[in-house]
């Protein structure tokens, strides 16, 4: 069974053109998928469609076989958690653990179960020690970890991160990436990571590039970053390391098109010594 399956999904905002056009996307259970695309390519719209915040104009979305419709809305939402971009705009409570409990309270779990889940979720993001902290005093990375914990308390099987690292500093970004990797590996949560950062996309099993509301490319992350011409057509920047490798090649040095600095160094060393 697929974790997520969309068939011919289209969506447009009132007055605007198509944001999502005839989208077919399948995500397998336990997969780590990266979604790339320039601003306005429809990535965030996709995140909001997959857990029913937005409703498609046409087409169907299934989550573990359950159709995403009015009848199954909350059933699906429990399974698909979304973490958004702005660390400040996702918390409803001032105290960490109160906020983490919010989702679990909403679905009417008994108190003992909520307590267990808050414990689990805070543990999973490494925030148990700060459970009674005031949210506004936390760092950006910590706030986003609270947001992830708030989603985890609903025990989702899929987690979507909609540019959740875009507003963080490098340290905060590392924190989030570590947590997400762990959730995917240890908790077997299917991850859909929407991002601009190449290093983050490289963690995924598979990456898709969105352009004008369609899926333009599907490949391994390394495979995608190797397609220089195509990336440029979709308004994406080449990875920096690719640019360097390309310049070296143009200068007559034989180096592979790689995304790993170690590998590039190895090639340069071999090529220089020869």
């Amino acid at each position: 069974m697929h974790a997520i399956e969309t068939k011919d999904v289209s969506f447009s905002y009132e007055g605007g053109g198509f944001r999502i056009a005839h989208l077919d996307l399948t995500v397998e259970e336990g997969e780590f998928l990266a979604v790339l695309g320039h601003n306005g390519s429809g990535k965030s719209t996709l995140a909001r469609l997959l857990n029913g915040i937005l409703v498609p104009d046409s087409g169907t979305i299934r989550v573990f076989g359950t159709p995403l419709d009015d009848q199954h809305l909350y059933e699906v939402r429990k399974q698909v958690g979304v973490v958004f971009q702005n660390p400040d705009n996702q918390t409803v409570a001032s105290i960490v653990e109160d906020d983490v409990a919010f989702g679990a309270e909403n679905v009417g779990l008994p108190r003992e179960e909520i307590a267990k889940r808050v414990e689990f979720a805070l543990g999973a993001v490494g925030m148990l020690g700060l459970r009674n902290a005031v949210v506004s005093r936390l760092s950006g990375g910590q706030k986003q970890r609270v947001a992830i914990a708030g989603v985890l308390a609903l025990k989702p099987r899929v987690m979507i991160l909609d540019e959740s690292t875009a507003m963080l500093d490098p340290r905060g970004r590392r924190e989030i990436v570590e947590v997400v990797k762990k959730l995917n590996r240890e908790e077997k949560i299917t991850v859909i990571l929407i991002t601009h950062f190449m290093e983050e996309a490289l963690l995924a099993d598979r990456a898709v590039v969105m352009n004008r509301g369609e899926i333009a490319l599907t490949d391994t992350p390394a495979g995608i970053f190797a397609r220089h011409e195509e990336l440029l057509t979709y308004n994406l920047a080449l990875p920096r390391i690719g640019v360097i490798a390309k310049k070296l090649t143009e200068g007559g040095l034989r180096v592979r098109d790689t995304l790993d600095p170690e590998q590039l160094a190895e090639d340069i060393a071999r090529s220089v010594r020869r």
């Binding site: 029913g52 939402r77 409803v92 309270e105 909403n106 679905v107 708030g150 609903l154």
Partner: peptide, 15 residues
């Protein structure tokens, strides 16, 4: 959106 995503549906059923 974030509240919706965390299954907020008003006071009903809420614990």
């Amino acid at each position: 959106d974030a509240m919706d995503a965390r299954c907020y549906m008003g006071g009903k059923k809420r614990t």
